[in-house]
Computed example of a mutant assay.
Amino acid sequence: MKLPKLKHTQSGHFFLIAGPCAIESQDLALEIAEKLVAMTDRLQIPFVFKGSYRKANRTKLNSFTGIGDQVALEILKKVGDTFQVPTLTDFHESDEAERAAAYVDVLQIPAFLCRQTDMLTAAATTGKVVNVKKGQFMSGESMAFAVEKIKAVNPEAEVFLTDRGNSFGYGDLVVDYRNLPIMQAHGVPVVMDCTHSLQQPNQASGVTGGKPALIATIAKAAIAVGADGLFIETHPNPSDAKSDGANMLPLSQLEALLEKLIRIREAIS
């Protein structure tokens, strides 16, 4: 994956996409980024900072959606400039792609929107790297068409695919690890989303639940299967997070997990 400011690409390690679910404030984003940069530099893990400038897919009308698009996008740019790391954000309407691309290095297509042709082609035209999350209703084989749509518009576009589990009934997800090598066969890097794959959606409360105690399990299995990268949302105090706190890994636990994952990667190399 060719990204400006992406370091440690010769280390042979998996790459890491990590950060808070949503941009909550500049101070918090910089605090999280500083700690993530320090640990990934020490471990020589290629790192992309992730943060959503807006959360459009919420169950309840009064759920937190963001601090304002422009403010959050400017914070993402500040993170990238301050720490010299690439940044990633998702967008939710095709006409938002160009605007978001002015502030970040990677545009992400949310899982529920991975079949939306206008979204995929809009991301392709920006020239940015595009991460497409596999829909909870999609097979690994069917994600070939998302890659095909992007490449048809921009043959030089860099694309990677992210698995985030499949719907298992109405309120749970399961991970089918066969999808990782299946999607790698499409000729693109493949990432495992270790936090969203543990969501428990459609709860009666209107707030998505999760099983964060199993984040390490998902991550270890993904590395053992040969995932190119991992996606992990993290926060200093997940219980205080304004979005998806039920799924996020406490920031204090991430470095020890990454050390274990490196040993797994080395064991299978």
Rank of each mutant, 00 (worst) to 15 (best):
A123P: 04
A124H: 00
L198S: 08
P238N: 08
A38C: 00
T87R: 12
V129K: 01
T82L: 00
N166H: 06
E156V: 10
E96Y: 09
V207T: 08
F47I: 07
L214C: 11
P20I: 03
D41H: 11
F112P: 00
A38T: 01
K60Y: 00
P110I: 12
L43C: 12
A29T: 02
V153C: 09
Q10M: 13
P201A: 10
K2V: 05
R42P: 00
T87W: 05
K7M: 02
H235D: 06
T217W: 06
A267W: 00
V153N: 04
E255M: 09
F145K: 07
V153P: 04
P86G: 01
A100T: 06
L230P: 01
G12Y: 03
L257Q: 09
K77Y: 05
I182L: 04
Q184T: 04
I75M: 05
L180A: 07
S142R: 15
P181G: 03
K134L: 12
V159G: 03
K149T: 03
I23G: 09
F14V: 02
T126M: 05
E141D: 11
A111D: 01
H92K: 06
D90E: 14
F160L: 13
L36K: 05
E158V: 11
L249C: 06
G12P: 04
V175R: 00
L249P: 02
L180M: 04
A146E: 03
P189Y: 11
V85K: 00
K149G: 03
S197R: 11
F168A: 11
G169I: 04
K5D: 14
Q44I: 09
L254R: 02
T89P: 02
S269D: 12
G187N: 10
V37Q: 08
A204C: 00
A224T: 14
T117S: 12
S94R: 01
Q44M: 15
I262H: 06
F15R: 13
D69G: 01
A123H: 07
I264N: 03
G51R: 09
V104A: 11
N247L: 10
A29L: 03
F231I: 02
K220P: 03
G171R: 03
P110H: 11
C194Y: 06
G171F: 02
S52F: 09
H196F: 06
S142H: 15
M1R: 13
K151E: 06
V48N: 11
K55Q: 14
A246E: 10
K7R: 14
L261G: 11
A100Q: 09
Y170W: 12
D240E: 14
M248G: 05
E31Q: 09
L28Q: 15
E255D: 14
L249T: 01
P212R: 15
G135W: 07
Y177Q: 08
D163H: 07
G209N: 10
K220G: 03
F168I: 07
A204M: 11
G226N: 08
T59C: 03
S142W: 14
T40W: 12
S167I: 00
A157R: 14
G135S: 13
N179C: 11
A267K: 07
A224W: 04
P110F: 12
R115F: 07
Q199A: 02
E266L: 15
L73E: 13
Q108S: 14
V190W: 10
G51T: 14
G12I: 04
S252V: 15
